[in-house]
Design a protein around this nucleic acid. Structure first.
Lengths: 336, 336
DNA sequence: ATACTAATTGAAATCGCTTTCATGAAAATA
DNA sequence: TATTTTCATGAAAGCGATTTCAATTAGTAT
């Protein structure tokens, strides 16, 4: 015995009005006499009628659903953005179709296409790199796309980020001011533009301004993980670096733990600054000085922009840059 | 200039066949002459036709979308389950509508209803507590529901979990064997059945078997957070407990850091065991002994069950219990 | 009362696809 | 060759809403 669904037609019949009228009251259309509205609402209540969103989507060509492409939900950085996205989406009565892409180009194109097939009204994309293929798909898509926490140097896709280059520059400059000459930079893959185009540039700018030489043997491409940090630590130690800027908190935790355990004191022998201010930065000992990013807000603002685009409104600015900060913890020494 | 969408009708016309035939080739129906199939596929390719999933959903009454209700994506425990869910869903060509519920009963009912309105083919629910209202909605729903990492003592809703009671019992028994007489239990709210019905029971069973008295002043209801752990630590210290079982890794990290900083050595003065084996357990110093749960698999198995239910198949077992383990780290002493 | 405008309603087309059923063609059996 | 079966295909009826447009009713101003 399949559960019977009640349709708009049933309501219309019971209320002795047309489907059109029922549709109007359901959608809050003001052109309905109060008495009629009341009558219809009563029937809706009685029959426990719930509009079928799929039918509605087909007829109205709006699904009130947005697609969200995320590298990996278990990555706290992206998950935080996703939370901001969902909250705002909910506020605007949208739902989120969330798909993991594993940062794999092909997969990203695939999921984008299935999202479009599902007639999402818009897409929020998070990822570490955007190649031409993907950029082309964004253009081709009939629904608007907004990047959250994701840079595209070619950038005509709207996006929300912090100024990664400036943040790194400031962090590294702080280190330089404390007398460090050899500062390591531990990042993920340099094929990702956030690293190659922004963080590395910020690092170089800081060195330049201080007239310090750039030495690419101090720049490490590792994975973004705790274990990668542990593996990287001896390499950093051998390099003679006395400070390191790290692109990922767990990696930084790995570097710190491995350092402390091999007798290298943080911050006295090695100062460490990391990037995302996740809970990890508070848990390690010493706790880690970090760039702070308004993660939730990045997602929230991206979703707000998307709602504008979905309603064919103009964006005030296509590329929004939110403010970052730096929170000082025990992995760095206090300024002298 | 709105981008023009090409429909099944366009393909039919161009290929000089009927919509029905196009539909058949798109859906891999074998009743199509190979020559015809080829011709249609060529047109599909040429026109870059993409079936509209909404229309398809309306006609077929299957949306190939499942709803996922999660307390908070930024909670690594639930996010891990979600990852397992999404991977299996993708494998079966389903998409995931993900919504945060904040564990709030009213919100949970709401999102469940909007999910049903969107005609999801099934729902996976994660949460800390299931009340009568919610249970009633599950029954009422015409799509099947499966619980992942979520217990329902009343339980006729299919679910996937580990045996929380047994896990806690084993962990606490280990502590008892090492001579502890006063063992604290730090949990989240006791109004959540996973705590009240399972963890607490496992704790009591362990005490009982060892003929140790149960002292409810050793049972703490705190929040699940790092800060809650920090706040709770002095209370535990005052209680005279020499060991503690903790229900959340971040809370455990808080307890450990606060202890170490107030001169209470872990594990010599206080042994700590926690519940979820997240990355946090490796990062703290000492690292934390933990129950291990196959988080990804809990999600994956739940999704597999759901696919069966969505295809009207029978479940081999309604209540699946996956194996847990205990990984020993430095926050506990080695057995004597 | 009469004419005219505004407010309410309903009929019917549409959205893009799936699916049943009928039909003609081709293959198999007698 | 005649008769069944089996295959391929198309026509058309939905699926459950929205939305346009015309019709009806009510309200207001002469």
């Amino acid at each position: 015995m399949e559960k019977q669904t009640v349709t708009i037609y049933d309501v219309a019949r019971e209320a002795a009005v047309s489907m059109a009228t029922v549709s109007r009251v359901v959608n809050g259309n003001p052109n309905v006499k109060p008495a009629t509205r009341k009558k219809v609402l009563a029937v809706i209540e009685r029959l426990d009628y719930r509009p079928n969103a799929v039918a509605r989507g087909l007829a109205s060509k709006r699904s009130t659903t947005v697609g969200v492409i995320i590298p990996d939900v278990t990555n706290i950085y992206f998950a935080s953005l996703a939370r901001g996205i969902d909250d705002i989406a909910m506020m605007y009565k949208y739902n989120i179709i969330l798909t993991n892409s594993d940062d794999a180009g092909e997969q990203e194109v695939n999921v984008l296409n299935t999202l479009m097939a599902k007639q999402v009204d818009g897409v929020i994309f998070m990822g570490n790199h955007i190649d031409d293929k993907l950029r082309a798909e964004f253009k081709r898509a009939k629904a608007p796309v907004v990047l959250a926490g994701t840079v595209d140097p070619e950038g005509d896709t709207p996006s929300v980020n912090i100024d990664y280059a400036a943040a790194v520059e400031e962090a590294v400059t702080n280190l330089i001011k404390r007398g460090h000459k050899k500062i390591a930079l531990a990042l993920g893959s340099l094929s990702q533009s956030i690293n190659a185009e922004y963080r590395l540039k910020g690092y170089k700018r800081a060195l330049n301004k201080a007239k310090l030489p750039y030495d690419d043997s101090l720049v490490y491409e590792a994975g973004y993980s705790y274990d990668a940090g542990i593996k990287l630590q001896p390499v950093i130690a051998d390099s003679g670096a006395t400070a390191v800027f790290v692109g990922d908190d767990e990696m930084a935790a790995g570097i710190i733990n491995a350092s402390m355990e091999s007798g290298i004191d943080v911050p006295n022998d090695l100062e460490v600054i990391t990037s995302n201010n996740t809970i990890v930065t508070q848990i390690t000992r010493p706790a880690i000085t970090s760039i702070t990013q308004p993660l939730y807000d990045i997602g929230a603002v991206a979703m707000r922009m998307l709602t504008k685009l979905m309603n064919d409104k103009e964006l005030d600015e296509k590329t929004v840059t939110l403010p970052y900060g730096i929170v000082r913890r025990a992995s760095t020494k206090t300024a002298e």
